[in-house]
Computed example of a mutant assay.
Amino acid sequence: MTHHSKTDVLIVGGGLAGLSLAGYLQRQEYEPTIIEQATEWRGSGYGIGLWEDGLAVLDELGLLDAAHKRAADPNGFEIRASGGEVLTRTSLSPEQTLLLVIHRADLHAALRENVPSDWIRMGTSPEHINEHADGVTVTFDDGTTEVFDLVIGADGIHSVVRSQCFDDWSKREYDTYVWSLWAQQDVDVGQDMVSVWGPGSEGFVARVGDRVGFNLAARLDSPPNPPGREELRAQAETIGWQLPALLDGTDDEPFFDRVRDVTCDTWHTDRIALLGDAAHAVHPISGMGASLALQDARVLAQELATSRSDHLSKALTRFESRRRPDAARVKRMARVEATVTFLESKYLRRLRNGVVKQTPLFDMFIKRQATE
């Protein structure tokens, strides 16, 4: 069965990047089709820090208040050594929201409110994508075929669009694994975001209302069997502070994944473009992956708004040229952060902790992060 859709744009992937782009395109009188491989929206995922660039996108989409109701505005950012000793603390301005901490599922729910539900097809993925001079023919997994002017791959780190339509890319797998739990708890973790550094590991904790978000990442010689709760317990006990108590406070199954990043030599063809993690997934230690994805959506929408329909390739070229430097900067920064954070040597950890405790380097880093 073949028919030509009246919809010009296909967005593959209903995650943060895809929904943000749809929100912008709606204002430009597009009616994009969004396809999502999952049959239902998941409630799991990381705790996310949204800095200024990400907050600006939510504000433009009219969703900042909705996100704020689901998020925490931390008083500061603490770094603690294994066991709980405070190495340094940076205060965040109470007069200005520089950072929001939010569960990915809550941010996703806020973005969904901005997109008509009949634009979204759940449980659908592309089987074949064929680009030609007049458009892009997409065959879906139910056997139907449609033609679009533009296809956007916003389908994450395991992108089907990237795999089918691009050659010069690589996906790097780290020896680092991450767990995330969000649960209602009365464990005292304060009102700051807290990063606790263990041997080759990090615990990240933040309170959002009556829930506590708890991410833990650790370097391991071999992957545990998902969801690896026994290994999570062992890592939490090694890091210490309040992490074991947070595990005691919930029987929920943790979100579990391996840390990966993606590098693509190009993010676009004449009629196909990659967005967010599909183009440039970064190590989550940066805390910038969501903000990068939201900014990608903003810039792509800007370029499409100022381009004629017969100049799509030029719009995609400008989009990539504007966004690639920012993604490359975050990727470099993330690799440095991961090297510093996941030290295993006792001597190097002691040296690092001393530098953080005795110098203003971390304070300078956080203030730069909050304003770039």
Rank of each mutant, 00 (worst) to 15 (best):
T2V: 11
T2P: 06
S5F: 02
S5M: 05
A17K: 07
G18W: 12
L21E: 04
G23K: 10
E29M: 04
P32Q: 07
P32R: 07
T39K: 11
W41F: 15
G45S: 05
G45N: 05
L55N: 03
E60I: 05
L64I: 14
A67M: 07
K69Q: 14
R70W: 00
N75R: 12
F77G: 01
I79M: 10
R80G: 01
E85C: 06
T88R: 09
L92W: 10
P94K: 13
P94R: 10
Q96Y: 13
L98S: 02
L99E: 00
I102E: 07
R104V: 04
R104P: 00
L107C: 05
H108S: 09
N114P: 04
W119C: 09
I120T: 11
S125F: 13
P126R: 04
E127H: 08
H132D: 02
H132L: 00
G135D: 07
V136E: 08
F140R: 10
D142H: 06
G143D: 14
T144G: 09
D149F: 00
I152C: 13
G153F: 13
G156F: 05
I157E: 06
S163A: 15
C165E: 06
K171Q: 15
R172G: 00
R172P: 00
E173R: 11
T176W: 02
Q185Y: 10
D188Q: 14
D188R: 13
V189I: 12
G190D: 03
D192Q: 14
D192N: 15
W197R: 03
G200C: 09
G203K: 09
R211F: 01
V212W: 13
G213I: 10
F214L: 14
R219K: 15
L220P: 09
D221Q: 14
P226L: 06
R233C: 07
A245F: 03
D251T: 09
F255N: 02
F256K: 07
R258H: 09
V259T: 03
R260T: 03
T269H: 03
R271L: 01
D277E: 11
A278T: 05
A281W: 00
I285Q: 04
G287F: 01
M288Q: 15
A290C: 11
L294N: 11
Q295E: 15
T306Q: 14
L312I: 12
K314V: 05
T317H: 12
R318P: 03
F319K: 10
R329T: 13
R332N: 14
R335H: 15
R335E: 15
A338S: 15
T341V: 15
Y347S: 10
L348G: 00
R350M: 14
R352M: 07
R352P: 11
V355M: 12
V356R: 10
Q358H: 15
D363H: 05
F365K: 08
R368V: 10
A370N: 02
